[in-house]
Amino acid sequence: MPDFPYINARVRAMRGRLLAPTQLEDLLAAASLPALIQALAATPYGHDLQEALTRYEGVRAVDDALARNLQRTTRRILEFADGPPHRLITILLLRWDLANLRAIVRGRHAGRSAGETLEAVIPAGTLGEGVLREMAGSPTMTALAGALEVVNHPLAPALAAGVAEDARTNDPLAIELSLERAYAEYVLRQARGAGARALREILTAELDAANVKTALKLAPAGLPDEQRLRFFTPGGALVTDRLFLDLSDEGRQARAWARLRAQGFPVKELPRDLVAFERTLDAAMAATLAQRYVRGDPLGLDIVTGYLTMKSAEVANLRLIARGVLLGLPRELVRREMVRV
């Protein structure tokens, strides 16, 4: 890995521009959205915010500024990387593409306008805002798949296959599930070899978490095995398809959970409150990822991963704060939902 020392030095330098917890707290204390925008203008997001304010107003401008900033950050990291690191970082960015595609597919299904769909999109991945806008505006699902194909995106075949299945069976879930699986397969395929160990670990841990979440959500429905298995995404390290089936069956759940715990799953108790469980699990995952910044391999992808996790957690927190301030949520509530890394 010839370039990582350089990339990591640059990324470490960027870390100083992350907001301190006290700054977030100050922003949260803003009395109104305009006050928050004023306060945010004095942070490293200021310039993006000013640019965003030329086009949007209110919380939309904040969202736009945050997304733009995140995108610029990831682009900058890609700019000073090439060779294998560039490839690995690009793969790391695919997660945003997946989330964005999901949002656009849903928007399409719901018959939203391009503008409305774009509100749910965070253009931090490899797909730029222009392409996302183009896709959000495509008239049909097929057109959406074509738009993705045109930019030669690794998830394009999966989207096309999902769209074809949706057309056949009229099941919108097919597209999302197809994307989900294709993402996992693609990243695992790319993350072979010694240099990509970190990436592989991250993805398998994420797949495990996602599968556990899905299984717990499926449990009360009491579906037959083959229908439940449809929601399983293979590729995790701990959760096999059999364990998934056990976890999603209320009768066998407790025993399965004991097995999961024995294998070192971050959440120890079989959860009663799913919302709290997801919050805890997400926080634990984010913290583990961010820990890579401190403890990880200084000559590998860990620093970049850790930094990107911290950065995206910060952006998520700021989005949360903006909405919290806009909706007048109690600060305690917002604080509880904030991801701390």
Binding site: A103, R106, G107, H109, A110, R112, E116, T117, E119, A120, V275, A316, R319, L320, R323, G324, L327, L329, L333, V334, E337
Partner: peptide
């Protein structure tokens, strides 16, 4: 909870 969900996940995810 809706406000929180809206804040955390965005309006689109909820509406979808």
């Amino acid at each position: 909870l809706l406000a929180v969900a809206k804040a955390v996940e965005g309006r689109e995810a909820l509406e979808a």
